[in-house]
Design a binder for these strands. Structure first.
Lengths: 146, 146
DNA sequence: TTACAATTGTAGCCATGGCAACAAATTTGA
DNA sequence: TCAAATTTGTTGCCATGGCTACAATTGTAA
């Protein structure tokens, strides 16, 4: 995972690099989902707790804890024992980027005529795999058809 | 992974189910990528060998071997020691579905103005996360703008 | 044929992200 | 206050998909 985010990945030139690209992107999805959820929770409820993430993602608190430890190590999240979670400035930057991208994908799907729930579901899966170029194309489409 | 493919997954109703949905889809991506690649290789070169997959995905042959064992167990691939690989009818069905979906996503991105290489890259990442409904909307868009 | 190259298989290691079970800390309510 | 409920932490297990290193088989060319 390192510190790089998606946009920092080198653009692939070989055919097999396409899969490598997707693999690296995968390794970042969890981080992106978590910082985005933490940012949302802080915005909506004032704080983000392990139990909120556990419920939000539908996984055990043990799993959340393990992932938080990793995100801490990677400099995206700060946490003190038995206290609520915070984002580092790095984490906040990532969260903001993710939220914007998520919103673009969601509204793009809506503009295509997809129903609300499906748009939310598909956006969740798709958002991590959209390049800057495609994101720009989505925005362009939204300006004309949004 | 089981036998179900994406379309067989239950449609989620809870918020956390969206992530569960994505997780299950993730577990199927490898299977989909492999059966699709195997089908392509058989169509283009007459046979699919471990070394071809290894090169195609840019991973070691040991990794390919391990995954092939799993796909065999799951009834998607048949293999005999030191021989080339084949798809079961189940595997072929999945491969066909994947190829069609991949092509739709690729052409959709092209129709949006995305350049060839980016369209290929993004399609690779996105194709596994597209619902039937969204796929249908993509097709509809292609009829009007393709 | 027979050695060498290429391919495939196997073993053992790693990190990630699942889980249950148990331990510890914090919060809450009587 | 203090016992109970909730939350959080820890441990140890599992499967997946990476890898290297080494073994075995197959293919090839001399």
């Amino acid at each position: 995972m390192k510190k790089e985010n998606l946009s920092a990945l080198e653009t692939p030139h070989l055919r097999s690099d396409a899969f490598d690209y997707v693999r690296k992107a995968h390794q970042m999805e969890t981080a992106e989902d978590y910082v985005e959820m933490i940012a949302d929770l802080i915005a909506e409820k004032g704080e983000a707790r392990v139990v909120d993430l556990s419920e939000g993602f539908g996984v055990s608190h043990a799993t959340v804890n393990k992932i938080i430890l990793r995100l801490n190590k990677e400099g995206l999240v700060t946490n003190r024992p038995y206290r609520s979670l915070f984002l580092t400035s790095e984490g906040e930057k990532l969260a903001k980027m993710c939220k914007e991208r998520h919103d673009v994908v969601y509204h793009f799907l809506r503009a295509l005529g997809i129903d609300d729930r499906t748009a939310h579901l598909d956006a969740e899966g798709v958002e991590h795999h959209i390049s800057e170029k495609t994101l720009t194309a989505f925005k362009k489409f939204l300006k004309k058809n949004g």
